[in-house]
Design a protein around this nucleic acid. Structure first.
Lengths: 367, 367
DNA sequence: ATTCTTGCCGAAACCGGTTTCGGAGTGTTG
DNA sequence: CAACACTCCGAAACCGGTTTCGGCAAGAAT
């Protein structure tokens, strides 16, 4: 019984036995030749190699898997009911992963799960050996996936550092220094009152970006009053609320740094409702490089991440990890690149008399 | 040799042999019991079932695959360097696919390829049996993937009908009737001069939507001059150009129907540059339900597709197809739902004297 | 009481690979 | 010339399932 299905494959693949027969060898020998066993004569190896790809032989992953325990597949579990800054980039991220995997004849197994119930999904994939290891996007500060995989003995690579990175391989974007540079840049353009609006506090990216911003402000000797620090702005509406609160302060900031592009888009409306204009009365720099930001008026300055490249490196690192490279040797960062667009080009004339002091009357003059 | 990797799994799965031993049966019997063979006593079957899930037994996909030829995986090849109207929805689409697959203990294998070189990707996945069948998103009018898979004897389900659908299973959104309704609705709101801006001409969606629009116009007895029919607008810039051309006509349309939300977003700027305003002087209805449209001023009226549901149905249909259901029995459509937002709420007062005639002077009065 | 079914399960082959083991052939050394 | 060490490959077990085949036992038919 089981699943009886008529539409079986047309051509009946060439198996390793076919290759062996064509050469008068045994399949064991062919297998060892192809897998670089040292007890195979070099001449035999090239004969086997030649015949194998002349016959178009491609080993059957599942057949290998049952003996080796490896299916040459990267696992990726996307958590769905979650704010997804990477939504516009999912394509590129998947492309990076998939291409890098394909280059080594690996494939990509994707699953989704509601954030809470991800555990069961991982367990199923592990139990059925659908993946040799996992890439963990959007790491949280306390991330239950890490312990789960650690205990199961399944290799993984974090995208974003973890609170306790012992024994973890990770890849990360230098978002901290990006935010730090944002603070520098705004300060150099004359801003003294710069506010920050963060994202979801449970995630490591949020910590990193906020800290980077604060370092940047500290570098420039600029104070950051509590009222200038917001958090938890994920959606455009969140960002609008935060901007509204900031702009309604007695001493409103002249610039806002957002952790998330999407939230930053809300600043435009908040400013407009107060007769101000982003890019003229208020500078905004955000992070993500969301293409939609390019269509804002003026376009949103932002830090862009090369998601394709990130995916590719993550895939390569995970494959290396599965093959045995120690986790400690698999740690990389990649810089983000700044898109210096209109929203950031607000220059505050530095009055020598008031330079260094907080001077509220600086704000608001047209052009 | 081969890939020697230390981090092997912790717990050594329970195999079918373990279950058999625990019951004093042979693994053959256990296998048949679990797969509903008729020659197993009902009592035995329940004993086996009970013991199996008490022991947490889960069959190893790759082991099954080598005998059955099925790995219980859905294949999805995303073409990357392509205009992707589904980009904002990729998440939901994947979630729909993955959840429906998981419900039947299937998984999802995702690969990407540049549009041109997709063939090799399919061949590799087929050759290595990484997927039992494929879901083909974004069907083209002449789609090489169809012949490829047909010849290979690999099951597939089209997302969007194909030019020659013989022997094809497909799922489709009723975008034709959506566009038709859009024409009706605009006509009912008094519009007589309605233009259309299509998307990429190689894809079936474009054909379907355009035809639906023309039918709707025909239903209402409204003429569609050639100058009112545009095509090939994918990006926001494309849409802006098309709108500009239309608005610069001697008799500009009072409403534009777009095949793609993203292109429709360009109409806002084109209108603005001409002192007009979408939602007041120009009605716009598009298609895709892009969440960004909700942040336009006024929000973009559009037809939304439930991508999660679409993915789920596609997965279920493909699994059925793999299990033997004839392609002809696997054909479904799903309606799109109209988001009647600000951009469509332009009412042209129907002057009894001029009703039915094209009257250019109708346009543009401030409400 | 014999024969014929029928229900039910064990035994074993099989799928396509990998890995271990042993041994035939050759070359080296004492 | 015997003993020994290598090189290289065949033979066969193995992985975890599925599927075929055959046979035992109980009940039905003759």
């Amino acid at each position: 019984m089981n699943e009886s299905g008529p539409p079986l494959r047309g051509t009946p693949r060439t198996t390793i036995a076919d290759v062996a027969a064509a050469l008068g060898l045994t399949k064991g020998t062919v297998s060892r030749a192809l897998n670089d066993y040292p007890d195979i004569a070099e001449g035999t190896r090239v004969r086997v190699r030649g015949m194998a790809d002349r016959m178009g032989y491609r080993p059957l992953g599942s057949a290998q898997a049952i003996r080796t325990g490896r299916c040459r597949a990267i696992g990726l579990v996307l958590e769905t009911d979650e704010h997804d800054a990477h939504r516009p980039f999912l394509n590129e991220f998947l492309a990076g992963l998939s291409d890098a995997a394909a280059a080594q004849s690996w494939t990509l197994t994707v699953a989704t799960a509601p954030s809470g119930a991800a555990r069961a999904t991982y367990e199923r994939l592990i139990e059925e050996r659908k993946a040799d290891g996992f890439i963990l996007p959007r790491t949280r500060i306390e991330d239950p996936r890490v312990n789960l995989l650690r205990n199961a003995g399944v290799p993984f690579v974090l995208f974003g550092r973890h609170g306790t990175p012992e024994g973890c391989a990770w890849f990360d974007i230098e978002a901290g220094s990006a935010m730090r540079s944002a603070a520098h840049l705004l300060a150099e353009r004359g801003h003294r009152r710069i506010a920050y609006v963060g994202g979801h506090p449970d995630y490591t990216y949020n910590q990193v970006r906020q800290q980077g911003f604060l370092e940047g402000m500290d570098d420039m000797g600029l104070p950051v009053p509590d009222a200038y620090m917001h958090d938890g702005a994920i959606t455009r509406a969140d960002g609008e609320r935060a901007a509204a609160a900031l702009l309604d302060l007695a001493e409103p900031p002249t610039a806002i740094v957002y952790a998330i592009d999407n939230a930053a888009m809300g600043a435009y409306r908040a400013a407009e409702h107060r007769g101000k204009r982003v890019g003229r009365d208020l500078a905004v720099i955000a992070y993500d490089g969301d293409p939609n930001g390019d269509f804002a008026e003026p376009p949103l300055a932002s830090w862009a991440v090369d998601w394709g490249r990130a995916g590719a490196r993550l895939a390569e690192m995970l494959i290396a990890r599965v093959r045995g490279t120690p986790a400690e040797d698999l740690r990389e960062t990649m810089p983000a690149s700044f898109l210096d667009r209109g929203s950031a080009s607000v220059v505050i004339p530095t009055d020598p008399a008031t330079a260094g002091a907080d001077n509220p009357s600086q704000l608001g003059g047209d052009s």
